[in-house]
Structure formats: structure tokens, C-alpha cells
Nucleic acid binder design. Structure first.
Lengths: 234, 234
DNA sequence: CGAAAGGCAATTGCATACACTTTTTGCCTT
DNA sequence: AAGGCAAAAAGTGTATGCAATTGCCTTTCG
């Protein structure tokens, strides 16, 4: 019977299940609308149904899977409207964060933001998309933290994680890197001079542009049976 | 042991547990910081640990309880700062909803909002706090829906439910009913004439006032052992 | 006398077994 | 032949048992 867990890393079994299943959804290996059978998943990962069940519950709370009582779980289907709604929310949330950041950031926070932002300019010149993506995430996180509001932070991070699957390839568009940096520059400038309104507007515009850039990926066909079930990774 | 649900109402057992435990937290019967023992709760409600466990997971996602791996669950302790942060977020979210409502509500939605708002005026005159509370909830829900943005709606409802414990007694303050109605009136007026900026500002002010009115309840001493709540019955 | 290490009790995490709900399939009726 | 009903199969929901981790208490050594 149950032997050793696969060589997946740390955390409780449920955490591993959340990561494993979540990854497969985010990477598109599990298609939207696809049924998630508890027993199958449990067998696939060599665990019992219990942790799988709890993992599905968490993923449901994250919005990655949908659950109906007595009817099982499916990979969440994100409609065009819902996706637009999430990007819209993201724009509003980022605007709030930028506005608050402009008003509340400490001197140290402003300096760190500026320094990191300037440093990332080099990545644009080099066209280092991978590294820029990392700095991009860091940049936005700084904005969220700079708002000095724990709950706003939570809402924003939650929304961002929910949008992650659709933002993945936004930097593949040519010239997007430089444009992204310039948009960041507008935000930083506004924050440095404490102009909350301008910072908010700039952040909103920034996300709106990202939204449009990602819109092309919304055309992911849902409910495609897919040949196989579950492979290995992470 | 014997299966004999208490006389709590419908839904799956987990739903009942969520309601039961959530109610006890919201009503203050379970104090912030208090430990939530799975076995005790299961015995108290005459169910097995499994649904209790899942219920604690959901309540954790709602922010009502905090969970640490292998260390059990406790009633979430909300600090003064976090509470202020949540009210602040609520103000911003309601502002967004009101702004969008002013810009996007259909004619039917506007009419329904206006009618219901006017109807609630009578409740103010009568001083029917219970009934007004119901209409108040309804009013705000209309605003959330009127924004025509599913994700914004979700974020707002989530935040509101998380603030529920602290808003409970806001109408106990004398004269609060009439003031609340007047604030609603400003919002409705702005929405009716499609003035998004004004509606947003009015909604933000409204929540801010509620926040202040509720601030007094933030002084709930956490981690009071309490004689005990969960006794053995059966 | 204090501190650290080791053992013990309590509680959580996971596995397995059972019960109930939903869906499918095959047979019977019209 | 088509539709509906019923029984079985599949799958979720709940209960219970067992393993593993945590926190406390005792014991021992500096």
C-alpha cells in the first residue's frame, strides 16, 4: 500500500497536492472544465483521497477549481467576461496600491523602489525577459507592500495569483519589455513626488495595457479531453 | 457514533459546521485567539472530525480562523491595524462599486435601487433597526451587483463578510439610522444622474463613517479564556 | 539550582471503510 | 422504436482508525 511520497519537496501532503494540481492547472496541462476525480488524483500521486479532497477545497477557494456539492470538482472555466472583470479589478487594485504608496511609502521604501527600478533598465537593454519578469514581479510587490494596508495587499496578491495563468506570456510580444519599463517609470516618478492621483492613474493604465496584451490568450479552448491524465513535474 | 444531526438546518454537514462555528465566532461566543479543538467541536456537534476539519479549512479561507500546520486552529485575532486596513479596503471597494454602478447600471437596476431606497425611508421613521439592517444589506448588495464585475463583486462580498463581526452593532448608536439613510441618499442621487466620481466619493465617505462607528468595538479583548463554551453534552 | 535532553500524553494529519447521492445502463412498456 | 423507469455502478460525503508531530513534564547532568 502507500509507500513513499514521490520526491516532491517540503510541506504537508496537502500542500504538495495543492502545488501539484495547481501547477497542472496553471500550466494548462489540466484544461478548463476538465473533471477532477478524487480517486484518480489520489492514485496518481499515491496518497489517499483525504489530502486530495482538502487540496481541491483550497484550490476552490483560490478560484482555480469549481466545486458543486455531490457533483465533484472541475478545473475552473474562466469566461471572457470574468477574465476581463479580473483584469479590471486588478487595474483598480493596483491603482489603489500606487496611490497609497505615493502617499505612505517611507523614504527607505521610495529609495529601494527607485533603485531597483533603475537597475532593471539594464535588463531591458539586454532583452533578458526571464530576469525582467522577476524584477517586474518584485516591482509590483513593492507597490502592494508600500500601500501599508494588509488587507489591500491580500486582495491584490490573491487577484494577481488568479490572473497568473493568463499573464504568463505577456512579455513575448515584441517591444513589450521597453514599454513596460516606461510605464513603470511613470508610476515611480509620480510616487517619488508623492502624487497619489497620478500614480494611481498610471498604474491603472499600466494594467490595462497588460490586460490587452494578455487578451489574446483568453482564446484557450476549454474542456478538451486531452490524451493523457497526469504526468510528472516539479 | 450514532448519526444524529442536531436540529440545524439543511445543506451538507460541512455547511452546517461552517455556519455553526462561524456564527459562534461572529457572535463573539468564541473569542479571538481561542483554540478550536477538532475533536471537541466534533463531539459538541455530534459529527466526526472530518467535516469539522473541512469547515475549519473554509473558515480559514474566509479569514475567520487561523491555522498553523500541526498546531491546530484558533479564532482569528484581528489587530487594530488590520481592522482599520479592512475598513479602508471596504471603503475603496465600495467606492469602485458605486462608481461602476453609476456608469453601468441598467435602467431597471437604477429604478429598483431607487424604489427600495425610498421604501426603506419608512423603516427609519419607525426606528425598525432589524428591518433596516436587512434593507441596508440589500442596498449594498445592489451596489456590488450593479458594478457588473464579477470579480469586484467577489472581493467586496468577501471583505464584507470578514467585517461582519465588527459591524454588527453599528446601528445601536442613536441617530445612526437616519444618518445612514441620508448617506445612502447621496449615493443614490449620484448614481441616478450617472456621476461616477461623486457616487464613489459618497460611498467611500459612507463606509468611513461606519468604520468610525464600529471602531469602538475593536477594543474586544482577545484570548480571554472564557469559562468555557464547549461542554460535553450527549 | 538551572538548563537541556528525553519520554509521555494530547492533538493533528493521513488512510481506510462505510453511507448516501448522482449518473449511467439496460430492460420493459407503450 | 422511443421513452421512461429501475437497478447497478461510479463517485462524493462522512466516520473511524492509525501514524506522526507537537508541547509539556520529568529527569538528569552541569
Amino acid at each position: 500500500m502507500s509507500g513513499k511520497r514521490s520526491l516532491i519537496r517540503s510541506g504537508t501532503t496537502v500542500d504538495q497536492m495543492v502545488r501539484a494540481i495547481g501547477d497542472r492547472i496553471v500550466t494548462g496541462f489540466l484544461r478548463p472544465g476538465e473533471k477532477l476525480d478524487e480517486a484518480s488524483l489520489a492514485a496518481r500521486f499515491d496518497v489517499s483521497r483525504t489530502p486530495v479532497r482538502e487540496a481541491l477545497g483550497r484550490l476552490s477557494a483560490m478560484g482555480l477549481v469549481e466545486r458543486r456539492p455531490n457533483r465533484g470538482a472541475t478545473v475552473a472555466v474562466v469566461t471572457q467576461e470574468h477574465l476581463a472583470s479580473m483584469f479590471e479589478s486588478m487595474a483598480e487594485l493596483e491603482a489603489i496600491c500606487a496611490r497609497f504608496s505615493a502617499e505612505r511609502m517611507t523614504t527607505a521604501e521610495r529609495r529601494a523602489l527607485e533603485i531597483e527600478h533603475q537597475a532593471s533598465a539594464r535588463l531591458v537593454q539586454l532583452g533578458a525577459e526571464e530576469d525582467y519578469e522577476y524584477f517586474n514581479t518584485e516591482f509590483h510587490t513593492r507597490l502592494y507592500r508600500g500601500a501599508h494596508s494588509k488587507h489591500i495587499y491580500e486582495l491584490t496578491v490573491m487577484t494577481r495569483s488568479r490572473l497568473a495563468p493568463f499573464r504568463r506570456a505577456q512579455f513575448m510580444l515584441p517591444g513589450r519589455l521597453a514599454k513596460s519599463w516606461q510605464e513603470h517609470d511613470v508610476i515611480v516618478t509620480a510616487i517619488m513626488r508623492g502624487d497619489g492621483a497620478a500614480a494611481g492613474q498610471a498604474a491603472k493604465d499600466h494594467v490595462s495595457i497588460v490586460s490587452e496584451a494578455s487578451a489574446v490568450f483568453a482564446a484557450v479552448d476549454p474542456m478538451k479531453p486531452e490524451t493523457d491524465s497526469i504526468g510528472m513535474s516539479s
